[in-house]
Amino acid sequence: MTSTAGWTGPTGRSERRVPRFTRAERLVHRATAGLMLLCVGGAACLYFSPLAQLVGRRHLVVVVHEWSGILLPVPFLLGLASSAFRADLRRLNRLAQYDKEWLRAVRKRWTAPGLRPAGKFNAGQKIYSGWIAGAVPIMMFTGLLMWFSGLLPVISRTSAIFVHDVTALAISLVVLGHIRLAYRDSQARRGMRTGFVELAWAKREHSKWVQED
């Protein structure tokens, strides 16, 4: 990891910064987030009567919901062309020994510096990404079974609807939690917005990443 010349922070002093995400990674995140919000928003309009009456145009909402779901994996697949994106996928796919320490510290509500060691991604982010990676194909599969009735006769449309709805509710709750945590951490948002974070934040929240890179 290399640090760059600092910018002037909110305190008026110069702060050293380090690169965290490339432009390609940020574009993948933004496109995926946009499609996910369209899916969740469309589902909310379809299932909650007050929202459905407020928005109207049910057929248009259905079309947007269906196609945003189908397109959801596209940013990920395009991102595979980026070596930085592939490297981060490998990071997300591995739980290190210090990730167990991070989980234990979170469970016991330890907040002191150094008690929550993390690499570029902490254990919570790794679990979140793995869960989403598993839930999205389930949503796509069950959604296609609902869209094309009879596509797989051994699975009834009622069963597909049940699994789709339960998984959608779980995804909505998890995504809301993800947004809430991001809202509480301005440096995490800055890293995804600009690609850079303060070196002091990186050392505090992702100490293993600083050491490794």
Rank of each mutant, 00 (worst) to 15 (best):
R16T: 11
R57S: 07
G143K: 07
E198F: 15
V62T: 10
R109M: 12
R104C: 01
T11Y: 10
Y128P: 04
W131P: 06
D88E: 08
G69W: 14
W201D: 01
E205S: 09
V61E: 03
L173Q: 08
A44C: 01
P117N: 12
L145D: 00
F48Y: 05
W201G: 00
E212K: 13
L95N: 06
P10D: 12
F76R: 05
A81F: 14
G143V: 02
S83R: 15
R116A: 01
E66I: 09
V64P: 05
A123K: 14
L89S: 04
L27G: 00
D185N: 13
R17D: 00
R109G: 01
C39Y: 13
S207Q: 14
E66V: 12
F162I: 06
Q53L: 09
R20H: 01
W147V: 02
L54A: 05
A133M: 14
S207P: 13
T142W: 11
S159Q: 07
I171G: 00
Y47V: 10
E101L: 15
A200C: 11
G34W: 14
G56H: 10
G42V: 10
R116Q: 11
F121I: 07
L176S: 12
K208L: 15
P73A: 07
R13E: 12
V175S: 03
Y98H: 15
A170T: 08
A200N: 12
D213Y: 12
A105Q: 08
F141K: 00
G150S: 01
W147K: 01
H29M: 03
A123R: 08
L95P: 01
Q97L: 15
L27R: 02
L71S: 05
V163A: 03
L145I: 02
Q53A: 11
R26H: 01
W7Y: 15
A135S: 11
A33P: 05
V210N: 09
T11R: 09
P50F: 04
T4F: 14
R189C: 05
R116G: 00
C45H: 02
L35E: 02
L176G: 14
V62M: 11
R94E: 05
R57D: 08
